[in-house]
């Protein structure tokens, strides 16, 4: 190590880790190949990452919509603005809550299992075995999972948003007896397709990429022991949570 880096011990290790993670990502992207086998494997990973996260996404989405409507409705009616509840619900869902919460839930459900899977492959020499069979593990293991994350997270965000709105409708219309026409028309009047909805989807794609990258990276770089894999799964959740929230702030600042 160069002499001036010894002064920055605190940053030295995280920076090198970041550098290695970036290099890993570039290698994975540079070796992308799209054969029939690859597409089939990617679809399989969409199943593992996406379909298996559906239950948690739908459940959480419904209750987030429910409680968000409950709270804002209570506050807004004090100002006589109860009708605005659907606006608040849709805007906060599309712009922030949908992408962010989905990414966090994805990291907890699918991210950890990707990390554990790859970490165990490392520990049980499956990655070495691929290498020795002249099959590139970057191509066969890493690439399908990266792309699957990129596809699954936006898909899950869409489903999360729909179920959350259903939760909102359930509370505002069925429990509180608001007029459904007002509910929908207020929502439509205040949500812009481009800025609010598509902006949120841009976030969803970015978060999906980030979550999949971190999950794959921590699995890949895990120490090949039980403790190493356990630590790596924890790191995946923590790192995804922190970086998603930071990236969310940056993207929001750019979009507004």
């Amino acid at each position: 190590m160069s002499p001036n880096s010894t002064g920055n011990r605190l940053f030295d290790r995280p920076l090198r880790e970041l550098g290695r993670a970036l290099l890993f990502l570039f290698t994975a992207i540079s070796r992308m190949r799209f054969s029939r086998l690859q597409v089939a494997e990617t679809l399989r990973q969409v199943y593992f990452a996406g379909v298996r996260s559906l239950v948690i996404i739908v459940t959480c989405g419904f209750f987030v919509g429910l409680v968000l409507t409950l709270q804002t409705y209570d506050t807004l009616t004090r100002f006589g603005a109860g009708d605005a509840v659907s606006t608040v619900l849709a805007l906060s869902l599309f712009r922030e809550l949908g992408p962010v919460l989905t990414a966090l839930l994805f990291a907890g459900r699918a991210g950890t299992s990707i990390t554990a899977e790859i970490g165990l492959m490392r520990a049980t020499e499956q990655l070495d075995a691929l290498d020795l069979m002249a099959i590139d593990p970057m191509e066969r293991i890493v690439q399908p999972r990266l792309i699957a994350g990129l596809i699954a997270v936006p898909a899950l965000v869409l489903i999360f948003n729909v179920t959350a709105i259903v939760g909102g409708v359930f509370f505002a219309v069925f429990l509180m007896g608001n007029d459904p026409v007002t509910f929908w028309s207020n929502m439509q009047a205040s949500v812009e397709l481009g800025r609010d909805f598509l902006g949120g989807m841009v976030k969803a794609v970015a978060f999906g990429f980030l979550a999949a990258w971190l999950a794959v990276w921590f699995g890949w770089s895990a120490r090949p022991t039980s403790e190493g894999v356990a630590l790596a799964t924890t790191q995946t959740v923590i790192a995804t949570a922190i970086t998603v929230l930071i990236l969310d702030f940056v993207l929001s600042a750019f979009m507004l």
Partner: peptide
């Protein structure tokens, strides 16, 4: 997911 996309684009946005 595509159904959700269409629903949101048609029903919830201006």
């Amino acid at each position: 997911a595509i159904a959700a996309l269409i629903f949101l684009a048609m029903q919830a946005t201006d």
